[in-house]
């Protein structure tokens, strides 16, 4: 899912869709639908509304396909349509302030008790003795990382998944989620720091 040489690929895909290639459409759905639900859910109040907005968005995408000019990637274009629809729906629901503006950046300070009053380590991190290569092959660890992500506050989780799992750029995330650069950075950092803290006990024991 990291950026490919988009424009050629995208135009070929759009051409296939316009020609009625149902498999091409199915693949596009498999690739983007779950992430679209995640992004829609950022704006609206529950999963069911997110599902409705996403379904409507697919139809809007189909209706707009002929006007896709490839000036942005297909993905960026699709998520712009989604965000617009989700925003409109959120407004109609009376949820006019995106939650993104509110939470995640101001929760409790990270690891507060690990530092003294001057901000120096009181409890320094214990060394992780394993090397990165063996870590990434560790399935149990991967499942711990996944549950750490599941436990994150929702806003932090959304930003982390889009940036680090889906490989979106900071700009793509800011556009899809209506986030300022600062908020994006703070949410991402907090999410990563929490995942680090969640897996640390296991890695400190590995010797």
């Amino acid at each position: 899912m990291h950026d490919q040489p988009v424009h050629t690929t995208d135009r070929a895909r759009v051409a296939a869709l316009l020609a009625g290639d149902a498999d091409a459409f199915g693949d596009l759905v498999d690739e983007h639908h779950p992430t679209m639900l995640r992004v829609a859910r950022w704006y609206v109040s529950n999963d069911q509304v997110a599902e409705e907005v996403t379904q409507e968005t697919w139809l809007a995408i189909l209706d707009g396909l002929a006007t896709f000019e490839g000036r942005s990637s297909l993905k960026t274009w699709m998520f712009r349509i989604l965000a617009n629809r989700a925003r409109t729906r959120a407004k109609r629901e009376g949820r006019s302030v995106p939650m993104s503006a509110l939470d995640g950046g101001n929760d409790e300070p990270l690891d507060a008790d690990r530092f003294d009053e001057r901000g120096f380590w009181r409890t320094p991190p214990e060394r992780w003795s394993t090397d990165p290569e063996s870590l990434t092959a560790d399935r149990e660890l991967a499942s711990r990382v996944m549950s750490a992500i599941d436990d994150l506050p929702e806003r932090q989780r959304t930003v982390l998944v889009l940036r680090d799992v889906e490989g979106w750029s900071s700009e793509e995330v800011r556009n899809a989620l209506d986030l300022s650069e600062t908020n994006q950075r703070v949410l991402l950092h907090r999410a990563r720091a929490k995942v680090r803290a969640a897996i640390a006990p296991q890695l400190e024991r590995v010797r």
């Binding site: 498999d30 995640r38 991190p125 990165p132 870590l135 990382v145 990563r192 720091a193 897996i199």
Partner: peptide, 18 residues
Amino acid sequence: QMGMTVELVRRLPGDRGT
């Protein structure tokens, strides 16, 4: 450790299929 954490997260499979 933060670098390793990010690397671990990046290796997770994304949301696919539905």
